[in-house]
Design a protein around this nucleic acid. Structure first.
Lengths: 250, 250
DNA sequence: CGCGATCTTGATATGCGTCAACTGCGGTGG
DNA sequence: CCACCGCAGTTGACGCATATCAAGATCGCG
């Protein structure tokens, strides 16, 4: 249902019809000035009046909640092309901070709403983004619910790898934009457990450190097998791994 | 942004304009026959070709994924008025089964898509539902990431209570439609831990069993305090805490 | 009344959290 | 240019919450 945002047919159809309407989310934000955030700077806070929608054009953002005793739960990382601030509440339901230097463009909620309502091209794209976000949230629930520390970390590295390679094969180097503490808060672990688990993967030769914030993938097949995403025939796992790649091109 | 699904103004405006278009999701499905599912029966499975969208008119559905070693993660429970099957993938990303006897109505994806595209009344309602689902998913991530067994169970009971009372005050009895195993798979615990934690709450007089699948709320205030959702008067942080309460009408 | 399914309770194991010390790197100032 | 400082990350020792394994207990149903 609904064409996906990445489907080029959407844009082509719009051009053919010579519509003056906006055809991509990026165009929608194109009239807004870019704003920059320094590393660690906040974009908005949970509970703030939600007046704007933001499009990230560069960098990495973390969105998180703080609970009772002050602990932080990072519910997601957002990258160039993602939007943040979508909600129908009058306040933001989470906080957003720059992990790296970030560039964003903003639109008022009203302007955004009007554009969406008036553009049959944009609506499916928004729907698509929301569905992807929902699917990611469910995968994260599986991770937090049942995966071991090792499975969590491997899943996370795979996710980063896939993002960096743009859906093609795994890159040979994975860049980590975030700190160990960020990883811990995203994976539902402590910083110590993340550190120990990384060390174990290195000792097993599955990844090799490449500076403090990057790893080389020395055994990508093993990494995938350790994700705990099933279809594994237990210890063996290599042919099964291929199957999954075919079935879930994600 | 966008009126919420529960905002009566939407329907009133539509009537005033005498539009022939569908004004509520329920009307959208009203031409489809009701289908019934027995307790435990499946509606669709993860990986099935996703051909339909379903509206639940009665009963409770669980949606879940099965991972590697056969363990099950329930990512949500759905109730009358909810829709299930929304996605832009060609296959369902999770399975759906009846927890209680369930009645549903179905629409093909195409019919649903067309209706949404043609109805300015329906679109904000769909958007609203998706936003609520996203907010619930994030709350669940917080629960799974950082809450103790007791906090998880109390949060779950509060959620059930709020649903049953229709956003008003807590009801004095909470009905559990699901088994302990379902609760465990939803809360990221084992059935034994759920059972023990329930027993502890009973012994502390916070809840009182009322049959095997219902509890009376003897100390609703205590239950709320044990959710771990902050706003606790704990030891420190009082000014900050008050601020947060004001900001989160939740 | 008895059988199976669901739930509870108990004993033990373990993975991860906690607390604490240490390491190494990068920046800063003398 | 080097010495120092501070922070991010690592490593180690230990404890605890929850999982696991194993009996019972209770409920519903034939």
């Amino acid at each position: 249902m609904f064409s996906t945002a990445s489907n080029p047919k959407v844009a082509i159809a719009a051009m053919a019809a010579m519509k003056p309407q906006l055809a991509t989310m990026d165009e929608l934000f194109s009239t807004s000035p870019r704003e920059t955030l320094e590393m660690g700077e906040g974009l908005f806070w949970e509970g703030d009046r939600a007046q704007h929608i933001f499009e990230i054009t560069e960098g990495v953002l973390r969105i998180f909640k703080i609970i009772a005793d002050g602990r932080r739960v990072i519910t997601g990382f957002l990258y160039a092309g993602d939007m943040v601030g979508l909600s129908l509440k009058n306040v933001y339901l989470y906080s957003a901070e720059a992990v790296t230097p970030v560039k964003v463009r903003r639109l008022t909620r009203k302007a955004f709403q009007d554009a969406i309502e008036n553009s049959p091209e944009l609506r499916p794209q928004l729907f698509s983004l929301m569905c992807d976000e929902m699917a990611a949230a469910q995968d994260q629930m599986v991770l937090l619910s049942r995966k071991s520390a090792e499975e969590r970390l491997c899943s996370f590295l795979m996710m980063l790898g896939q993002r960096q390679s743009g859906q093609t094969q795994m890159p040979k180097t994975i860049q980590l934009a975030m700190s160990r503490q960020d990883m811990a808060d995203y994976l539902g672990l402590t910083i110590e457990t993340v550190s120990r688990t990384v060390t174990k993967l290195i000792q097993r030769g599955i990844i090799t450190p490449n500076g403090r914030h990057a790893f080389d993938l020395t055994k990508p097949g093993k990494l995938l097998a350790l994700c705990g995403d099933g279809d594994s025939y237990e210890d063996v796992g290599d042919p099964a791994v291929k199957t999954r790649q075919a079935v879930w091109p994600h």
